[in-house]
Nucleic acid binder design. Sequence first.
DNA 1: AATGATGCCCAAAGCGCTTTAAATCTTACT
DNA 2: AGTAAGATTTAAAGCGCTTTGGGCATCATT
Lengths: 343, 343
Amino acid sequence: MNLKELSEKLGISQTTVSRALGGYPEVSETTRQSIEAAAQRYGYFPNRRAAGLATGRSNMIGHILPKSTQHEMVNPIFGDFVAGAVETYSSRGFEMFLSQVSDQDEGATYRRLLQTAVVDGVIVQGPRANDPRIQTLTEMGLPFAVHGRSSGVNVPYNWVDVNNKSSFLRATEFLLDLGHRRIALINGFEDMDFAMRRRNGYIAGLQNRGIEIDPSIMKSQEMTEIYGYHQTRDMLTSDNPPTAILVSSLISAIGVRRAIEEAGLTMGKDVSVITHDDELSYLRNGETVPIFTATRSSVRDAGKHVANILIDQIENPNSLPQTQLLEAQLVVGRSTGPAPGSK
Amino acid sequence: MNLKELSEKLGISQTTVSRALGGYPEVSETTRQSIEAAAQRYGYFPNRRAAGLATGRSNMIGHILPKSTQHEMVNPIFGDFVAGAVETYSSRGFEMFLSQVSDQDEGATYRRLLQTAVVDGVIVQGPRANDPRIQTLTEMGLPFAVHGRSSGVNVPYNWVDVNNKSSFLRATEFLLDLGHRRIALINGFEDMDFAMRRRNGYIAGLQNRGIEIDPSIMKSQEMTEIYGYHQTRDMLTSDNPPTAILVSSLISAIGVRRAIEEAGLTMGKDVSVITHDDELSYLRNGETVPIFTATRSSVRDAGKHVANILIDQIENPNSLPQTQLLEAQLVVGRSTGPAPGSK
DNA sequence: AATGATGCCCAAAGCGCTTTAAATCTTACT
DNA sequence: AGTAAGATTTAAAGCGCTTTGGGCATCATT
């Protein structure tokens, strides 16, 4: 059933049927009702491709999955972030488009997405410092919003980010206050902007108290469970093991705990751990009392916010870019305690 | 730049340009080359909406995210499954469409997707026994492929599934051979087809050896870490604790391990554990030697296969449904050992 | 009674592409 | 030279929708 057939069946012009269904005012209430009833009865919905062709809008938001071997974007937070974004999309009449692309072609892909008119805007994930995508997209005029920020980019753009620096600064101070002096950092890849900021927070925390930075206990890699395990095991068997560890991801923190327990030590007593907690739906950090003391910020909420900001931009193309800095909570769990040997 | 402009610039008809770019044979090699060069130079790509309108194809595959409170489809395997599917899509010229929908509207959504001509086919995830979606989609004539199967449905349809029953049968037998007689099952929701099959495998394994089934050590719920932890903790403190546990998900197995260690016991010695391992990219089950003995089958590969089967169906609408039963490996790790007290 | 508003409705153009049917140009063969 | 067959190319018709620019009643205003 298409518009033409429906309008013939009703003996009403396509124009009027289209308007009635589109909610436009220049249709009398009686005809509108009969049209809506008929549409309902025949299960009619406008063909989105045709509508898009006519209006120039697709009501789709693109997400690009870089297909690189190095950084695995299909990480645990991907699912929750997408779930948040999709929730917003569906409530605002949009849908999500996902495409995979080799790393170096990302610019070309955006250009193609714009040229082929398949999305109204895109979400940029995993920004690095001076991320070239922001420049490219700005020049192209394809609406976009970034999950995270990109240090060094000074054109205005839409973004939503957690205050990574202040989170890790506070976490570091919390450990210092507990008497810890040797604090390790198990971070993500430091060309990722969020990881850089976390490191900066950590360093600032130590320096404020005049503690020397030791690169040998600052790790940086993709945040898997195994990675957390390895780094912790290695550090715990070194000459000068840390008494506390700051971890960038709950997944890695699980590996950290495994290494601590395997070494016959107790987390929260012999070694304190603070992790960043994205509040993943299937991997909660404990219940009422968190397993890990954590800097907590829901990645799902971030997804909702980014999506909203992008849709605002699409619906109102001349509006100024919006930004949103989410403050993480520092929640205390059972993985932290006074430094061993401190009075 | 659109087709009209490009063809005017070249002084060649739109027809020929379209054919040259589409790779049709009735274009001379010389004109084809000049057309391709020009398209390249101007960054021309055909507008997909317009092309879709003309051909009736969208080259998009739909995934539906049910938005229910009970079952969380954005589970850890979602990301990897999607990554696998998207890999196939991108190699075969398709893209992914994701939409969220409240549980009860799923039928209506499929109908809408078909009517609005937005996808060429859909992937069905998380099938239950007698899943009504299969019937609906078959009747509608919207191509689809299922990740998993649906017991009780006897129309033919496209599916890819792991042999859940035989995996859990083998795992059970493996534990029995090690002398375990009290084996618990921590399963997913048993209205999910895969969970039902796993339970059947487990039960068959026990019954083959004449061991009585004890419902009090057969658990069924959403497979989170916390769930694995709770169930294990409760069972270990009961009168008649199990000496071995079969777990349906690595995430829950992590919780199982936590409970075992918290009880002061050793996994692989006091309590044996076998988990199903979906080979999640960010949550590997150890390295050369697995942490957990596991029934292993890559969910990412499953995503690739399902996508391929669906695209085959779309490109060849009259072909018969394809099915694929993947056999899981039983890989031995450090979480299993002889039953305590067995000679 | 003539005029201007207002409310409803419609015909037709146009979005950018693919593809059918037909035209033109070559080449091959009598 | 004349013609059929084959190779290229083109004009034009859709695909199904939205939206512009009128048109025709109806109603209130001078």
